[in-house]
Amino acid sequence: MLFQYLKYYIISLNYFFFSLKFRSIMTFLTSFCITFFYTPYFIFFLKKNKISQIIRNEGPITHLKKKNTPTMGGIIILVSVFISVFFWAQLSNKYIFYILTTIVLYSIIGFLDDYYKIILKNSKGLIPLQKILLQSIIIMITLIYMFFNDTKNLYIQLIIPFVEKIELNLNFTSYLIISYFIILGISNSVNLTDGLDGLVIMPIIFISIGLGLLAYFTGDINLSRYFNINYIKNTKELIIICLAIVGSGLGFLWFNTYPAKIFMGDVGSLTLGYIISIIAILIKQEFLFLIMSSIFIIEFISVIIQVLRFKYSKKRFFLMAPLHHHFELKGLKESCVVVRFWIISFILVLISLIIL
């Protein structure tokens, strides 16, 4: 009897430690602790090597005081995400494999962009054409690899309130084009939005929570039926990556909130935008993802409007683009703009989940 009891206890304990619930909690705590405890050392290292933010001359005058703030903090975020996912995720899961292998490549682009800014002492970094070309190569390789390993999931679901789900079946070319522009657009939109202390990381956290829930629902056959979405086997595991971003993001926000002691840099903003885009594509929730990410899209559109208006009429539509700078010049304090953007982002994620 005692032997049977111990056997049952050991099996139960083993099941608990390998369960998704336990691994998710540990992923969150691991990523948070790594970022929270090691960021001060990373800040010291960056200051010692004079790796600091290069401020745009055409930006708000109030931002000139930030010129000595360490940058490239995205490195500590990505390292903590990678380590926590490596330890707690099932590495045999193909979706985990897609993301871990490609974020390393994509982060190199952001790293090079930051590196050139610091070495050349200008705020431009890589030439836009160089950046887009490098991004395009990695995105295309990723999508083609995903396609040949997962051809049965070549569709997009449109979730419309009070209406049956609409499933758009795509051919390879359509899938490639749509997915390419989602990844390229969102990753660069996140990069453009990263202009105020703490502005980007909190919306990334909100979106990661939303995507984590969607990944869990999609990977559970009963919940997928309940929410009227297509069941995709093994996507539950993506919640590990989402919670790694949440934990790491909160740890980083401790030092990135106004007044920031460290900036994320392109290595962080570009790569985080890439990760959340890939997750949305893997779980086939591109439509809801675009609603969640609308704050980034609006920022991107504000830049396009500003450029086109100035090109053809030599007048500015906004006082300054991206949009967050417009509100700064209207007299709002930086912290006020940031928190209001957070609120809007939270509402957008909530709307997406309500639609589901």
Rank of each mutant, 00 (worst) to 15 (best):
K94G: 04
T235E: 09
K94D: 07
K131R: 04
I137V: 15
F287P: 02
L158G: 01
K311A: 03
S269M: 11
R56C: 08
I144Y: 13
G74Q: 01
I283G: 10
R316M: 03
F22L: 13
G219D: 00
S92A: 12
E334K: 07
Y38Q: 06
F3P: 03
D220V: 01
T142V: 12
I141E: 04
G185Y: 07
Q4W: 10
T193E: 02
S269L: 10
L129D: 03
R309D: 04
L308F: 01
T257P: 03
G331V: 02
V246K: 03
L6G: 03
Y38P: 02
I159V: 15
S277A: 15
I229Y: 11
H324Y: 09
V190P: 09
F181V: 08
I103V: 11
V200Q: 06
T39S: 02
K236Q: 14
I201V: 15
A321L: 00
S80H: 06
I25F: 14
L158Y: 09
F206Q: 01
G210H: 01
N256C: 04
Y41C: 01
L112E: 10
I156E: 02
L134N: 11
T271G: 03
Y274P: 03
N149R: 12
I278H: 00
I103R: 09
L46V: 05
P128I: 11
I166G: 02
K65Q: 05
F346A: 15
R23H: 07
I141D: 04
I262A: 02
L238D: 07
L196F: 07
M320T: 00
L78N: 02
I139H: 09
R56A: 12
I160Y: 14
L196Q: 04
A321M: 00
L282V: 14
P60E: 08
L192I: 05
S352A: 15
I229V: 15
F318H: 10
T35S: 11
F341G: 09
S294A: 04
G331E: 03
V190T: 13
L78A: 01
I96Y: 12
I178P: 05
I351N: 03
I132H: 02
